[in-house]
Nucleic acid binder design. Sequence first.
DNA 1: AGACCTTAGTTGACACATCAACAATCTATT
DNA 2: AATAGATTGTTGATGTGTCAACTAAGGTCT
Lengths: 153, 153
Amino acid sequence: MSKKTATSSTRYQALLQLLRTAETLWNASRFFFDRWDLSPSQFNVLNLLHLNPEGSTQIELSRLLIMHRSNITGLVDRLEKRGLLQRKDNPKDRRAYKVTLTTAGKKLIEKILPDYYQAAENVWDNFPEARTKQLVGDLQKLSANLEKFFPER
Amino acid sequence: MSKKTATSSTRYQALLQLLRTAETLWNASRFFFDRWDLSPSQFNVLNLLHLNPEGSTQIELSRLLIMHRSNITGLVDRLEKRGLLQRKDNPKDRRAYKVTLTTAGKKLIEKILPDYYQAAENVWDNFPEARTKQLVGDLQKLSANLEKFFPER
DNA sequence: AGACCTTAGTTGACACATCAACAATCTATT
DNA sequence: AATAGATTGTTGATGTGTCAACTAAGGTCT
């Protein structure tokens, strides 16, 4: 049996494959959301707001999306310009807005969601459920390790 | 047993977790390569060129990196400006360049690689090798399905 | 040779992402 | 109450990514 070189180690390959698959998934989702002229990030914003009808502050969105606060500004700007959400003043904290879906935004996200869940099922194509559960567990473990090695954000 | 809602399906959660873990991994790698003032994409370019000493065309790089050709232009521009690689005219096809590492680029990537492989091992932290192999297989299967559902690039 | 199609790379317009620096506001401590 | 420190959101600079439209060059077909 030949000595393994660093470049061919399974663990190294696994990280590459993970990035590659995620890239493919992201591209697929970009293609998918194009029908409604949304980017995956824009969809994520609408989806989060839909789950939180009282509205979220921009900093909350940035934490949930693992994204810098300054990026939320532009994302919310563009969605607000399209009338899908609105910034509402927050009397409890005058530094922060409450961002909420408009009626149009709520209507759009509710139109998308069924297709979205269906697509998420389809791409697994008979993949055994138990195996999917294992995958989730493994990915979570890796995430935890990564955060241990590279702590701050 | 309660009927599962779409949002709680394991398969849907698995896709979210995949994106989340990949994001974390990407952020960790951004942090990692910062020591050499490189972005992950810049590292990938240098790494590919290091594996292919005869040089690659930009279109080859774009395919390997799953990235639009126009993006390679800027990526190569910046690395060329730093003297890490060079565009060489290609007599066999005067439309295309051959992009190769300079001595400085070769020296830099060879300084980075040992740390890189070590980090890739470290983040798995005693994760069983067999399980890693399974993960790679599962991710490949998902990738294949994704390309079936969302064909073109 | 000429006509036609394809391919490699660049450019410009735009979205998306980071960071640093700043203003406005909130909070804690004295 | 005053000061000091932290937090929210915006802005500007820069890098990264997409796409459409363009030039230059290659390939094919008659």
